[in-house]
């Protein structure tokens, strides 16, 4: 059953990443693009977790954790830039 479910899940998450990427390209405003980038990070975490289950390997967990950390820091830095016009004050 898992061998049937995992490809479907891969397709759904890949579709989600595609939609986020479309929003990243089309904008129209800067916060839209940041939001799309943030969503893309989270979609990548989902893909990595699915890949970990598919390959029965726990190695991908660290990558997922790092992407979560970097994605959050990146989003906050970009938002701060929009709010203040400067990152390091």
């Amino acid at each position: 059953m898992l061998s049937l479910v995992i490809p479907i899940a891969f397709a759904l998450v890949a579709g989600a990443a595609g939609l986020s990427f479309w929003r990243l390209l089309s904008g129209p405003s800067a916060p839209d693009r940041i939001l799309a980038l943030d969503t893309l990070y989270v979609n990548t975490i989902a893909l990595l977790v699915l890949l970990g289950i598919h390959l029965s390997s726990a190695l991908y967990f660290e990558a997922a954790l790092l992407i979560a950390l970097m994605g959050f820091v990146g989003t906050v830095a970009l938002c701060k830039y929009l709010l203040r016009g400067d990152i390091i004050e």
């Binding site: 059953m1 898992l2 479910v5 995992i6 479907i8 899940a9 891969f10 759904l12 998450v13 579709g15 989600a16 990443a17 595609g18 939609l19 986020s20 479309w22 929003r23 939001l35 799309a36 969503t39 989270v42 979609n43 989902a46 699915l50 289950i53």
Partner: peptide
């Protein structure tokens, strides 16, 4: 296995719906 399948499908479905809302 049923529980796993349900969780994976629900997770992937919600992820897709989230991006659909974004788009």
């Amino acid at each position: 296995e049923y529980l796993l399948s349900f969780l994976i499908l629900a997770g992937a479905g919600f992820t897709f719906v989230g991006s659909l809302g974004l788009a």
